[in-house]
Design a binder for these strands. Structure first.
Length: 354
DNA sequence: CATGCCGGGCA
DNA sequence: TGCCCGGCATG
């Protein structure tokens, strides 16, 4: 087992279908029913050493996937307290199943960092960051709860070791419904959200006095903040990573509910290489229509400028066998000389193609 | 187990 | 490049 199985029960993550090993290898049609999806993914889950007891779902009677329930609870676009953060904390802890239990409860703080270009806004609540994005970047009235489901809330979860930060950043406090003043604690590392997944980025926090950070160095562990990109793209299809495309314009995105859709374009197989107790950044986008920061006038990218390498098909994954009978079957072994050359060479049949 | 064919070796 | 085959996935 590895970390790819641990992205579960998160309020921001896709439904389990994308997290099961099966889903990683064989994307399922979007039209597939949730019941079916859940049953399959759960059956696969029980084959491993983890499981998800659905009995704790507060609204078990709805046909919606668990994500939808969680999403609807966790992302009202206004007035959401720190319980969201706690939920995320708990889930992320569950997600990555650290071999060494981290002292997360007290020292780790999940911050949400705006990913719009040239915006370093960091807030502690999803509602806050969404309000920020809506008002500042989307030009929406903050009082308006208008949501057409076309909003993109690109932000990243950042887990910050508050113990470490408090040593040098004691004057900074995160924003919460009870506290004010967003902490400008992060250097501009918007691109950090798009670091290659295979390796954790080490971001060294700059202290309040602006001491030169020892970038990319392990020598300053007290101010070290691991980040990790659980990059949640918006998309309707759970497969492939079309970095620049216009395909995601439907509203039937996975996890779509109440105008909020959360789904991933990135197959969860990307987490295979990740090991160790990383805290993480998760980039989140809600909605379908906008991009966080248009780069040029000519490039229309619906997704953040993260170019994950296309996951090489796992060794052994082949396309399904064709229906057509091939030379071997048609002519039989005794008439092998009648086979097409490809069949004779045990290659893909050229005569009876599919 | 039969079939299809990928990946790779060899001349 | 042509030929062949080990080995694996699929049904």
């Amino acid at each position: 087992m590895d970390s790819m199985f641990h992205l579960r029960r998160d309020t921001l993550i896709p439904p389990p279908k994308y997290l099961s090993p099966d889903a990683a290898a064989v994307p399922e049609p979007a039209s597939r029913g949730w019941k079916e999806v859940l049953s399959t993914s759960y059956s696969s889950s029980t084959s491993g050493n983890w499981s998800w007891d659905t009995s704790d779902q507060s609204v078990p009677s709805t046909p919606s996937p668990p994500l939808s329930n969680d999403t609807s609870k966790s992302f009202p676009l206004s007035s959401q307290g720190d319980n969201v953060i706690d939920d995320v904390k708990e889930s992320t802890h569950f997600l990555f199943e650290d071999p060494i239990p981290r002292k997360r409860k007290n020292s780790m703080k999940v911050m949400l960092k705006c990913l719009w270009k040239n915006c370093e806004k960091v807030l502690s609540t999803s509602s806050g960051i969404q309000r920020h994005i809506r008002t500042v970047h989307l030009g929406r009235n903050c009082d308006s709860d208008y949501s057409d489901g076309e909003e993109d809330f690109y932000y990243s979860e950042i887990e910050v070791n508050m113990d470490s930060l408090s040593e040098g950043l004691s004057s900074l406090t995160p924003t919460s419904p009870t506290t004010t003043g967003p902490p400008p604690i992060f250097p501009p590392f918007s691109h950090a959200a798009f670091v290659p997944r295979s390796e954790p980025a080490h971001i060294v926090m700059r202290g309040p006095q602006g001491h030169a950070p020892s970038l990319l160095s392990q020598s300053a562990p007290s101010t070290l903040c691991h980040i990790r990109t659980d990059h949640a793209y918006q998309a309707t299809a759970p497969v492939s990573i079309p970095v620049c495309s216009e395909q995601a314009d439907g509203n039937e995105g996975i996890g779509n509910r109440d105008g909020i859709s959360v789904s991933w374009q990135s197959p969860p197989v990307i987490f295979k290489g990740l090991t160790g107790p990383l805290t993480h950044i998760r980039t989140v986008s809600f909605g379908e229509k906008r991009q966080p920061a248009p780069h040029t006038h000519t490039t229309i990218c619906k997704t953040p400028p993260f170019t994950a390498p296309l996951p090489k098909p796992a060794p052994g994954t082949r396309k399904p066998r064709g229906e057509a009978k091939k030379c071997r079957k048609v002519y039989g072994m005794e008439k092998r000389d009648m086979w097409c050359t490809a069949c004779r060479w045990k290659k893909a049949c050229q005569r009876f193609t599919d």
